[in-house]
Every structure is written in structure tokens, then in C-alpha cells.
Design a protein around this nucleic acid. Sequence first.
DNA 1: AGATTATACTTGCGTCAGGAAGCATTTCGG
DNA 2: CCGAAATGCTTCCTGACGCAAGTATAATCT
Lengths: 151, 151
Amino acid sequence: MTSADHPLSALLRLFRSTAYLESRLSPGLGSVHGLALNELLFLLQLSRAPLQRLRRVDLAQRLHTSQSTITRMALPLEKIGLIKREADPRDARVAYVTLTKTGRTRTAEAEATFSRMAAEIFRDRWSDKDIAQLSSLLGRFTAALPGDLTD
Amino acid sequence: MTSADHPLSALLRLFRSTAYLESRLSPGLGSVHGLALNELLFLLQLSRAPLQRLRRVDLAQRLHTSQSTITRMALPLEKIGLIKREADPRDARVAYVTLTKTGRTRTAEAEATFSRMAAEIFRDRWSDKDIAQLSSLLGRFTAALPGDLTD
DNA sequence: AGATTATACTTGCGTCAGGAAGCATTTCGG
DNA sequence: CCGAAATGCTTCCTGACGCAAGTATAATCT
């Protein structure tokens, strides 16, 4: 209602920026490595995980999505050999999602192109300090949660 | 690859924050006013427009979505009387989406609760300056595009 | 130990989203 | 002017997602 409602405007701009950046990045990413943005985020979570593997529940939590989505997303990725299914010897309920060797290289390649695209996004009008500050501020939202993807 | 790849980490955190915040805000918003987050953004665009009305193409562009999505989203909103369809006397192709009187009040109410929820998000660990800075930085992404929703 | 509860995952179903094609209208080029 | 291209919108088709229910295994309670 009042002007300078910063919490509101920050959130509105956050959603707007995301919609904008997704529409801008998705096509390029998909065409280069055959991966959707969500799939790359999926794989990046694995690549950051201790043994390049995670339980499906944890993956769901880190990606802020549902378990069923994880199940469905894993299917094609397993079919093309980027991930594989692994059992837990101590608990027969869990089915780890594990990055394969091919998966590791493909993820690294896709991450590299994504990083280039990211740099391109910021190329104009952004100083290194601005970018670092933005990253730092955004990091606060999920600081307490596992799965931050920063190196 | 290298550490402190700020463009990359800024974008990753942006997507992650959005996923987190959507999952946190959507249920509450929907239960209070019966509007999904996307629908509120839809209505807010109209409330900020010159005559509380926009062409469907422009709405699609501002929301970074497709025209078909606008068509589909407009149906239920029109059915419950928040928006209405208006013709352009000079161009028979366009069908304006216009906010009704009920739509204006409902939008204002939903915006108020959304603003409260936004404030709640930032309540801990965020100074006013931090929030303003985040908002300002995010504003850069879409600064050149029409449809910024800041008052 | 046996029964209840909790956890991990999958499947079925309904909803929502985008791309391509289709239709109507306007604009452009000669 | 008249045909061709462009624009605005809708419809059809398909894919992605979440929720609730179902199954299997593990943990807990008495």
C-alpha cells in the first residue's frame, strides 16, 4: 500500500527476476547439453554431495520439490546413464541416486557452460562487488538449509 | 570450477531462494484469498497498469510466460468476477484484460497479506538496508523491461 | 516378540504450463 | 487496392508437478 514497501518489492522482484532468467537461460542450456535447468540443478546437488550420491528424500528437500518429482526426474537421467540407482545395505527402503562417471563429466561440462551464461547475464552494469553482494544476500534465505551449491 | 564463481553462485542461489520462498508462501496465500501466487502476480500487473487493464500479449510479456497461459489463467479469474474482458474499438484482435471493482479490492487485500508475509520472511537477520539493497540489485535484471511492480 | 507408527519410495490422478497450429484481423508492399 | 506478412488470441497436445494413496521396510512401544 505505502510506497517503499521493501519486503514486498524485494520478493516481487525476486520472482520476476527468476521468471526472466529462466526464460532466458533454459533454451540455451537445453540445446547445448540436452539438460533442462531443473535437471542441471538435480545433478549439481549430487556433484556436491559427499560420495556424489544422495537419498531421494534429501534430494527432494534440497531442491524444494516433492519426492514424486524426484522419482520421475531420475528416470530419464538414469536411462541416459548420468545417474544410477544404489541400495543401502543397512536400510532396504532407501535407493540412493548416484552420479555415474559419465554423469560427472556431463555435469561439469554443463556447469561450465552455465557459468559462462551466468557471467554473460552480469556482463553489463554489474561490478564484481555487486554480484558478490547479491549472492551473499540471496544466500541468507536458505542459509540454514542443506544443499547450498556454492563451491 | 574455480571457487568464488560469483555469477554462477548468484544465479544458483536465486533459483534456490525462489523455490524455497514459493514453497513457503504459496500455501498461505492460497488459503487466505483463494489465489495462487501466479494469479496474484497476474492481478498486480493489472492493478499497476494505466487503466487497470492490459492486452493479453503485454501481460504475457510482463509475467514472462506464454500467451496461452494468459488465456487459461484469465478464465477462472473472469469466472469469479475479478477481471473482465474488454474489446479495443480500434483493433478487433485485442481483448483487454481489465480489473473489475471487486478485482481491485481483492487484489489490494491479497497484496496486503502478501506484504505481511514478505515482512515475516525478512523479520530475522535482515536490516531495512539489506532488504532495500536486495530489492535494488534484483531490480537490475528487469530494469529495462516494462512491468516492474514496485510502487 | 507383536503390534503400531514412522520412513522411503512409487504410482495414480488432477492441475497447470508451454509450443505448435489454427483463426481472425490488421498492416505492409507492390 | 490486393495479396502477403504480421499480430493478437485461442485450442490442441504433451510434458511436468504435487498430493494422496499404496507398498515395503525400519523403528518404537508395551
